[in-house]
Amino acid sequence: MQVFDDKSKGRHEAWDIDIYYQEKMRLIITLATVLVLEKCPLRTVIGFEWTYGGSIINQRMLFYAGCRHIDFETQVDWHERRQLLKVAFSEDFHADEATVDIQFNSVRRPTPTHWNTCWDYARARLRVSLLNGLCPQRQKIR
């Protein structure tokens, strides 16, 4: 997980994020506990508790027998002011294009190979949907 300063330039703080916010990224590295919560033939569940400042992040990682995907369930008790929390996954793959969700459909977009212009930079910000059970959250692929 990553934390960024929330120094919005306008009056709409949640939607007016500075385009250069990534320049001052901090990693959440304080892992308080790791526990195997469940282990059976159908699935294994590992629990993590992370701390950052006065905040606590509880995360469960679920592995299912015979499935190639991993589910993450995350609960956040966030007490930080003017800081953004971002879930990020390191991926070791390359794709020439990505399919992204839009309202009532999806579209294919090329993945950026460079950021020469502000348009390239803005385009790179939206890439893969990470579902949180309520609505899709944006995640990027480079």
Score class of each variant (00 low, 15 high):
42 L>H: 12
15 W>V: 13
51 T>Y: 05
33 T>E: 12
63 F>H: 11
27 L>I: 01
20 Y>E: 03
49 E>L: 11
58 N>M: 11
27 L>N: 02
32 A>L: 08
61 M>D: 09
28 I>P: 00
26 R>M: 04
19 I>T: 14
26 R>K: 15
22 Q>F: 12
58 N>F: 10
40 C>K: 13
40 C>M: 09
28 I>L: 05
43 R>N: 09
23 E>T: 12
44 T>I: 13
34 V>L: 08
26 R>E: 03
17 I>A: 09
16 D>K: 07
47 G>C: 01
39 K>I: 04
64 Y>A: 06
64 Y>G: 04
49 E>V: 13
56 I>K: 11
62 L>N: 05
53 G>Y: 06
36 V>M: 01
40 C>I: 13
36 V>A: 00
61 M>S: 10
31 L>W: 04
55 S>C: 12
24 K>G: 02
32 A>F: 04
20 Y>M: 10
16 D>P: 03
53 G>E: 03
49 E>R: 14
45 V>S: 01
65 A>C: 11
29 I>A: 08
19 I>G: 06
38 E>M: 00
56 I>C: 09
18 D>R: 11
19 I>K: 11
32 A>T: 08
59 Q>M: 15
20 Y>T: 06
37 L>F: 02
21 Y>I: 03
40 C>F: 08
56 I>D: 05
38 E>S: 03
45 V>N: 02
22 Q>W: 10
66 G>P: 01
63 F>M: 14
25 M>K: 14
52 Y>E: 03
24 K>N: 02
25 M>S: 14
56 I>H: 05
23 E>I: 09
21 Y>N: 00
60 R>A: 07
67 C>F: 06
52 Y>M: 04
59 Q>Y: 08
60 R>K: 15
57 I>P: 01
57 I>A: 07
18 D>M: 07
20 Y>C: 07
16 D>M: 10
59 Q>I: 15
31 L>S: 03
27 L>S: 01
19 I>S: 13
50 W>R: 01
64 Y>D: 03
43 R>W: 09
40 C>Y: 08
57 I>G: 04
57 I>F: 02
63 F>Q: 10
42 L>N: 15
14 A>S: 06
50 W>P: 01
14 A>P: 00
58 N>R: 15
35 L>Y: 03
60 R>M: 14
23 E>D: 15
45 V>Y: 05
26 R>H: 08
